[in-house]
Amino acid sequence: MGVVEEHDGWSDVRGMAVRFHLAEGRSTDLVSMTLPVFFAPTPKTFLDFARKARPARCRRETPWEKIKDYLRLQLPMPDPYPGQTERPNEGAIAFANDHFWAQAAVLDASSIGAPVSYVRADYHAVHTFVVTGKEGEKRQVRFTWAPVAGILDTDPLKPPVDAYLQDDLKKRLAHGTERFTLMMQIGEAGDDFEDSTRQWPPHRKRVMMGTLTLDHVPEDQQALCEKLSFNPWHLTPGIDPSGDPVLKIRKDVYAYSSNRRGGIPCPFSGAKG
């Protein structure tokens, strides 16, 4: 689900990848997105979903179709943005109508909006990881970056602006810093540890792990952003991937993608792109 062209003002999911540089040259990655839940529980079902939700030619509902929706107490599909000719929404919704496990993500993705700034959105690592404590105890956890500036989307009733997120970040960081808090939610027996279509209740124990401070945007965006490669399996001892089959396949998918776009190889980039 998603459109290749970038339109900052369009409702869509955004991502954030963070590499923690640790002692003795070690590092660990955390790859996250603004959607809190995933579309499918397994690689096979995700492929089924992706085929159905491939962006397709879209049209505006006629006024009569919209009135019919209102009379059914349903919301019409949003009008396409100016210049928008295709989108994944119709295919994704049709797929979700037959597959309950896709409904939470499709509903969230359909209404996610556009953040006013990269630092006014929360980012979820979505999959479960297994962390090991000092005494060797293991816990299943999920991570979220919560913006200290708060979450805020653009007004969907105003015309969307095509490119503003990079400039906004540069302006903000020219005058100060922006911060995110890393929250860790602890799962309990009975929660789904291997299915990222299933969210955990918000009242599970959560731990404030620390703060990420952004202080500048590097000038060389090609070398210091576009060429970088992250991998959700690039983890430090003490953090392990869960058995989530979608997380499992992301290891090779990220390495393949890194090779294909000529990125700086990530630790698993043996695969040929």
Partner: peptide
């Protein structure tokens, strides 16, 4: 069977 997503407002 699953419900149609569009019917959630109703």
């Amino acid at each position: 069977p699953p419900h149609a997503l569009q019917t959630l407002p109703r």
